[in-house]
Simulated assay, not measured.
Amino acid sequence: MRIGKIIRRIVGSALPPALFIGLTAYFGWNVMRGEHGLHSYAAQLRLLDEANSAQKDAYAEQQVWLRRVRGLKENTLDRDLMDERARSMENLARQDEIVVPYGPHDRLY
């Protein structure tokens, strides 16, 4: 009987701290590595930065295309510029024209 009381007393005094330590460890692990923990939060921030970067790139490309499309509207087209551009792309020139060569990195438009 005496051994049973001693075991009961040891278990009774050790069980609450052991449960508390176990719960603290469980919640601590979830705070760090759980589905909504700090590691997941850092990964989500990296994904957000990548998405913002991709959005900026897409917006810049969209602006380039909008500028090109606006240049194709009927009231903005200049026949001389179209003729010059078509001949420069085909590498043709008339005899009465002056040809100004451009470097390989210079833009014509």
Rank of each mutant, 00 (worst) to 15 (best):
G71H: 04
N75T: 08
I21W: 05
P101S: 13
W65P: 03
Q44F: 01
G34Y: 00
N52E: 08
Y59I: 13
M1R: 08
M32P: 03
S88P: 00
P101H: 05
G4A: 10
E90D: 11
V31E: 06
I6W: 02
S13K: 11
L45Y: 02
G12S: 14
V11K: 04
Y41M: 15
S53G: 10
V69L: 13
R9Q: 13
A58P: 01
M1C: 05
H105K: 12
L72F: 05
S53L: 12
K73I: 12
D49F: 13
N30P: 01
R33I: 01
P104C: 08
E90M: 11
R46M: 01
V69H: 09
Q63S: 01
S40Y: 00
G37M: 00
R107L: 12
L23G: 06
E74K: 09
P104Q: 09
F27D: 08
G12W: 04
N75A: 15
A25S: 10
Q62P: 02
I6S: 08
A25V: 02
I3Y: 10
N75M: 13
V100W: 12
E35N: 07
G103Q: 11
A14V: 05
G28R: 03
P17I: 00
Q63V: 07
E50L: 11
I98M: 13
R8N: 07
E74D: 13
T76E: 11
I3W: 13
K56C: 01
R67D: 09
G12I: 02
A93I: 10
R70M: 14
R79L: 11
A58E: 03
H39Y: 08
L92D: 01
E61F: 06
L45Q: 06
Q62T: 06
R70H: 14
D83T: 07
H36R: 01
R87P: 07
Y109E: 15
N30D: 11
D57K: 09
V99F: 07
L108A: 15
G37L: 00
Y102P: 10
R8Q: 13
I21F: 10
D49G: 09
L47S: 14
M89N: 05
D57I: 06
R68W: 11
E84R: 15
D49Q: 15
M82D: 06
L23C: 11
T76P: 03
A43M: 08
D49E: 14
I6V: 12
R94F: 05
E90I: 05
L72S: 03
E74M: 02
A58T: 03
K73G: 08
R46W: 00
A86I: 13
V69S: 09
E97W: 14
Q63C: 00
L15V: 01
A60M: 02
E61M: 11
P17Y: 00
